[in-house]
Each structure stands twice: as structure tokens, then as C-alpha cells.
């Protein structure tokens, strides 16, 4: 019962954070909602007994990406007058929600149909020991490709972000 209450509170933060991102116009509120959402997703991983994913989510997504996004937003320091005027924003949101809902229901039904019929139980498969054994025995090539991808994105970011010589 307590687990259900915690789940619903965390879900409230996830959905509320996502709603703040897509509904608000202020960049500060958007980044706050993004942070609530990603941090609460870490809580969902804990409820699923995925302790290592919780650590990765907290350190990489919240600790690095959200902070980096906040730094970019504050360094751009967008004036109120430069924020895009979206007069009929809510109409677009309502229409796109109506269009996306059947698609979401289809994804939900498909995922439920292929989901094993087990309930959420305590598992040691999500801790660092099991994940590292799996990672370095069966997933070593994707892991190395990911490191090359990260290096390429680092070099690309430096190349894109430097000032053009006039």
C-alpha cells in the first residue's frame, strides 16, 4: 500500500514536470519542470529495483544534462519580448493531444501484450554487479561504439560551438 502511495506521488511529479515543460512559456519554469520530471523518473527506477539506473539517471541526466541546459538557458538570458509569441498555443496542444492519444493507446496495448505476466518484485538483476557482468560479457561492442559516439559528439559540439572567424 505504501509503495502504491509513493508510486502515485512520484508519478504526479513526473507528469506534472512534463506538463510544466510543454505548457509554460517561461524558460525558468520549463527547466524546473524538466528537473522535477527527470529526478522523479529516478524514483520510478528505484521502485523498479533498478538501483544502478537510478544512479546513472541522477548523475548523468539530472546532474549533467539538466544542469548544462540550465546553464545554457541562463547564459542566453532570453528577454520576455524575444520569447516566441504563440497566441493559439493551447489550441495546437489540444489538437495534437487528440491526435496522439490513439497512437499512445496503441503503444500501451502493444507493450502490455508483450509484457511478461509477472508483478514488480525485488530483483538483484538491476544492481551494479549484474549489470557490469552483462555489460562486459554480451554488450562490450555497443559499449565501445557508445564511447566513440560520445567522443564524436564532444568534438562536434566544440566544432559547432566555436565562434566563426570573420
Amino acid at each position: 500500500m505504501l509503495e502504491m502511495i509513493i508510486f502515485f506521488v512520484i508519478t504526479l511529479f513526473v507528469i506534472g514536470g512534463g506538463a510544466m515543460v510543454i505548457l509554460s512559456t517561461s524558460p525558468a519554469l520549463q527547466i524546473a519542470g524538466f528537473m522535477f520530471c527527470t529526478l522523479s523518473l529516478g524514483g520510478e527506477y528505484l521502485l523498479l529495483h533498478q538501483s544502478y539506473l537510478f544512479l546513472a539517471q541522477t548523475m548523468v541526466v539530472v546532474g549533467a544534462i539538466v544542469v548544462l541546459t540550465a546553464i545554457v538557458i541562463t547564459s542566453i538570458n532570453q528577454k520576455e519580448s524575444n520569447i516566441p509569441k504563440e497566441g493559439i498555443r493551447y489550441m495546437y496542444i489540444v489538437i495534437s493531444t487528440l491526435l496522439v492519444t490513439p497512437f499512445g493507446l496503441l503503444i500501451y496495448k502493444t507493450l502490455i501484450s508483450i509484457l511478461p505476466k509477472n508483478s514488480i518484485e525485488f530483483s538483484t538483476k538491476g544492481d551494479i554487479n549484474s549489470i557490469s557482468i552483462e555489460l562486459f560479457s554480451n554488450w562490450i561492442l555497443p559499449f565501445e561504439i557508445l564511447s566513440v559516439l560520445l567522443l564524436a559528439s564532444l568534438i562536434g559540439a566544440v566544432a559547432i560551438g566555436r565562434k566563426d572567424k570573420q
Binding site: Q57, I65, I131, L149
Partner: peptide, 9 residues
């Protein structure tokens, strides 16, 4: 975990 790396990139 790999998708988290892709998110970072």
C-alpha cells in the same frame, strides 16, 4: 544505460 549515454550525446 546505453540510451542514457545516447541522451548525453
Amino acid at each position: 544505460l546505453i540510451i542514457i549515454g545516447i541522451i548525453a550525446a
